[in-house]
Amino acid sequence: MSPERRQCGFSLLEVIVALAVLGICVTVILQIMSAVTTAARVTDDYAQALSIAETRMALLVAQDNPIGMDTGKAGDLFRWNSQVSEYQPAMDNPLFNNSGFTDPENIYRAYHYQVTVSWGGYRKRQLELSTVRLGVAP
């Protein structure tokens, strides 16, 4: 063969290397897309759980100090627990003095409201809202 008649094109080795690089790139892109999809689903679940917890908390606060516990389901995925009890500050809490919350007429009491929403099968997840508010003593 003369130097003028060189064949143009790719060798088999060049084609194999190009396919290997393409395969690696496609694999990486698919893994990134899977991670983004999972993160979006988890974020959506947390947003739904927060909405459920806020709704349950608003219902509790609207009632007149419903001391006790309650549980339920929201859809097929979410379970919630709510609890209202008299608030007992920790002895080492710097926000309270030794006598805790004082009310000379004994009209008001501090109540602790807590709502927990849990969901998930293999990977259990949980979100909790908690607050303390004053209410009229029973």
Rank of each mutant, 00 (worst) to 15 (best):
G120D: 04
M33L: 09
G135F: 00
R41D: 08
S34P: 00
L59F: 09
I52W: 00
Q114M: 07
N97D: 14
L12I: 09
G100D: 06
A137V: 08
F101S: 01
Q114C: 09
V117E: 03
R5D: 10
D70E: 10
V132D: 00
A39Q: 14
V132G: 02
M91A: 15
W119H: 01
W80N: 05
M91R: 12
G75V: 11
T37D: 15
A110D: 02
S130I: 05
G68S: 09
A58D: 14
E54V: 05
S130Q: 14
D76V: 06
N93A: 14
E14N: 08
T27A: 15
C25L: 10
T43A: 15
R123I: 14
Q7T: 09
F78Q: 04
L60Y: 03
L95C: 11
L50M: 13
Q114F: 02
N98G: 07
T27I: 09
I16W: 04
H112E: 12
A90L: 11
E14I: 01
D92L: 13
V36M: 09
G9Y: 04
M57T: 00
A58H: 15
V136W: 08
G68P: 03
T43G: 15
Q7M: 11
F96I: 02
I16S: 08
M1N: 07
S51P: 02
I24E: 07
L129T: 01
N65Y: 10
R5G: 06
N81K: 11
C25R: 06
I16T: 14
T55W: 11
G75I: 09
F10P: 00
F10Q: 03
G121C: 02
F96M: 07
R123F: 14
S11N: 10
P94R: 10
D45Q: 15
Q48T: 14
D103L: 03
D70M: 05
K73V: 11
E4K: 14
D45E: 15
I29T: 12
Y122K: 13
R5K: 15
